[in-house]
Write a protein that binds this DNA or RNA. Structure first.
Lengths: 335, 335
DNA sequence: CTGTTAGCGCTTTCAC
DNA sequence: GTGAAAGCGCTAACAG
């Protein structure tokens, strides 16, 4: 079994040193034209592909960033992944994705794995069950930016959406549509996003004088449906439901119809994230839109500044430690 | 700026050789207990993380596979990504995802990138606009398996879903529900999946004596809606629509309601892929279900056999070059 | 039980 | 213009 061709193989064929081949392949013009052409030709002929492992070992840079989040199945992150990948690629970076499957151990494992691969930087959306993983990252020299999350008392760079505002906007909209008893199906309160969204929900209620009704539900497949079905075994006073995210909103829509409620006839429904921006679903859900492209690119830009600063401390650091991206209200068919 | 700790640093602190550290870290028991414990403790203390680049350089194995497909935004692939990642991780492999954004050049670039990173194997879902990328892979020693696709006349390993059967089942179901003029919104015919689905659609029509109506539409955001809106500027005879995939089906549902058609009252609708298996969407769409977990694991198993065979030619090759996974009919609310 | 040596494929440095 | 030598961090092979 013959091995993959290396620069040495090219050098041998061309009768020059490996060094010269390396130079030519990296575009040096200080080599005689004849040799340059010969090397380029031979490289193509034998199907040479540079070994980036070896490259990285020597240069120290992998031109790779890692993105760590929970699950590809969450379309919010799937879309984010796409935009990050696209933007990173346009900047010459390759992206490693590692997922945590909602497990705190797996989260630490994912961080260690990508650190061991010497990525130049990390975009990290933590589960926030604990701070082990982020503490681990703080103890390393690899720059990282928190993606859509932040920790109280942890001094890390982050890019987040204005979740308080998003929830405020959707809740206010429901109130303006006449709802008075709004059930908020939130995610777990250890996630900062849930906390902020709850604050926005409460702020709107306060302004309009409504009572809060909050139920914490997992984002996993079927959990929103289960919760709603259980809840509606008894009569409920709600005239609107707000969900932590659109995927939960879709489950709520499905379940409400299942139990004979018309949306928006009998009950109003709004979600958050604004997935409608990237997909056309069977019905359009009123929602607070987060521009995932902006989120992806701001996070990547911030990370790049950190990477460049680290390589050359003359380069500037980001002027803010936290970037907050505003959300906008999308009016769908469910209100 | 102090660098990342290496085994040498540990060796120095412990007063032994780097080699000994390496042995201990890999679990050798032939080292004195005292030293083993000291090394383990020091490694933890200084936050040592093994450099897998260096490891791979030496051993030749990266314990990494690459998955190449078009776009994370396609939930079919997002779910597949999740299952592949989960399964690969359980087998000790890390997964590199590279996406092609529907571009033939980007496809070749993605293959070269992952090859340069010396992945042990590749799962590849080609765009099928051309065969450049697959030809590139055939010319390398890195084993690969085609994921959900196959090429006529290309002798590669592949795991695919039984798309002919899926389309047959959904079409037959529409016919049994009384539909006679079924519009098939297919994807582009250069994709083998489209060809097979078209064959299944035609087979069912033949059995029941219906006329084919096929329109090729891009899977991209909004394209199905555009196509349907354009089509329905004039009256149309269709009493059912079948779409290449569920995401197109959702767009169709949304658009049909937009133009005042009730589903299933005025017109029946079915998709393919069975995304309902992994998500609860606002309405459930009749569809042909592909078990993405099975697809992921069969493909990974096949790839592993190829990887092991390559490392040790005593190990067996897969007995079939192509694995076909059956599809099942899911009855939703749209028929 | 432990150390020494060599080398994976590449780039950097210094030399001519 | 080009080459030789060294070394990135690790592990395999051979010593002892």
């Amino acid at each position: 079994m013959n091995k993959k061709p290396t620069i040495r193989d090219i050098a041998e064929i061309c009768g020059c040193s490996a060094n010269t081949v390396s130079r030519v392949l990296r575009g040096s013009t200080r080599i005689s034209l004849a040799l340059r052409e010969k090397i380029a030709r031979v490289a193509k002929e034998i199907g040479y592909i540079p070994n980036s492992l070896a490259e990285s070992m020597r240069t120290g840079s992998t031109k790779t960033i890692a993105v760590i989040f929970q699950d590809f199945r969450n379309p919010f992150f799937a879309v984010l992944a796409r935009f990050i990948e696209e933007y990173a690629r346009s900047l010459g970076y390759f992206v490693l994705f590692a997922t945590t499957s909602e497990s705190a151990e797996q989260e630490v494992a994912a961080c260690r794995t990508v650190l061991g691969r010497n990525v130049d930087g990390i975009l990290f959306s933590p589960i926030q069950r604990d701070t082990k993983a982020v503490k681990l990252l703080m103890g390393q020299k690899t720059p990282f930016v928190l993606l859509g999350r932040r920790f109280q008392g942890v001094d890390a760079y982050s890019v987040i959406a204005d979740d308080e505002q998003g929830a405020y906007l959707t809740t206010r909209h429901l109130l303006e549509r006449g709802a008075r008893e709004i059930l908020f199906l939130n995610s777990f309160s250890f996630i900062c996003t849930s906390q902020f969204r709850e604050q926005g929900y409460l702020r709107a209620l306060k302004e309009y004088g409504g009572q809060p009704h909050i139920l914490e539900v997992s984002m996993e497949y079927g959990k929103t449906r289960e919760a709603l079905k259980r809840l509606y075994q008894k009569p409920q006073p709600y005239d609107a439901i707000l969900t932590f995210c659109d995927m939960m909103g879709f489950e709520a829509y499905y379940t409400l119809r299942e139990i004979g409620r018309r949306v928006p006839g009998d009950i109003l429904l709004a979600g958050m994230d604004g997935m409608q921006r990237d997909f056309i679903y069977p019905i359009s859900l009123t929602s607070a839109v987060i521009d995932r492209k902006v989120l992806a690119e701001k996070a990547m830009d911030m990370l790049l500044m950190l990477i460049e600063h680290q390589r050359d401390s003359g380069k500037p650091l980001p002027d803010k430690k936290e970037i907050v991206i505003p959300q906008t209200l999308f009016l769908g068919q469910t209100t």
